[in-house]
């Protein structure tokens, strides 16, 4: 039994090391997070306000954060780059780097869908397995009049 417990802790240490190696997010201490894997700088926390697509674009364009004013909405591939595709689905984003990330509303990307200019792509960090495995995806399309959260990037 002791050996089994020891092996379990060894496994725990090994898996923590792997997670540390794959964490490429640096907290800049000024409300922004740098992802060294993509060289993108992210807004650490959203402002807890939902907006339609147009208002979300305007929000990022007028945002002044950490002395910078060149913020914008991330495109669909940029936003997907901070989804974590391993471990437990409830840790589908690094919630230490990105605290209070909504699991109940999606986030807007800047990418308009190819088949309808009235729709855009959204990224959904749902922690609800049933919801996220439903008919919609975690990276899916929504009418631009829909209300989503916003996380800007530069």
């Amino acid at each position: 039994m002791k050996i089994v417990i020891l092996m379990f802790f060894c496994l725990l240490i090994v898996s923590n090391t792997v997670l540390a190696q794959t964490n490429t997010l640096l907290d800049n201490g000024d409300g922004t997070i740098t992802d060294v894997a993509t060289a993108l700088i992210w807004q650490k926390e959203d402002d807890n306000v939902v907006r339609d697509f147009s208002a979300s674009n305007q929000y990022c364009q007028s945002l002044i954060l950490a002395g910078n004013s060149n913020w914008r909405l991330p495109d669909v591939k940029e936003f997907t780059s901070i989804i974590r595709f391993s471990g437990n689905i409830q840790r589908n984003i690094n919630r230490i780097a990105f605290p209070a990330t909504s699991g109940s509303f999606a986030y807007w990307t800047s990418t308009t869908t190819s088949n309808s200019s009235s729709q855009a792509w959204e990224v959904y960090f749902s922690t609800d397995l049933v919801l996220s495995t439903g008919s919609i995806g975690n990276v899916d399309q929504r009418s631009k009049t829909g209300q989503n959260f916003v996380r800007c990037v530069r």
């Binding site: 595709f85 589908n92 190819s114 088949n115 495995t133 990276v139 899916d140 399309q141």
Partner: peptide, 17 residues
Amino acid sequence: QIDVAWELDFATGVLRP
């Protein structure tokens, strides 16, 4: 992930667990 696998739909690019 523990309970899910990820698929990508090349009709539009939807990525879903």
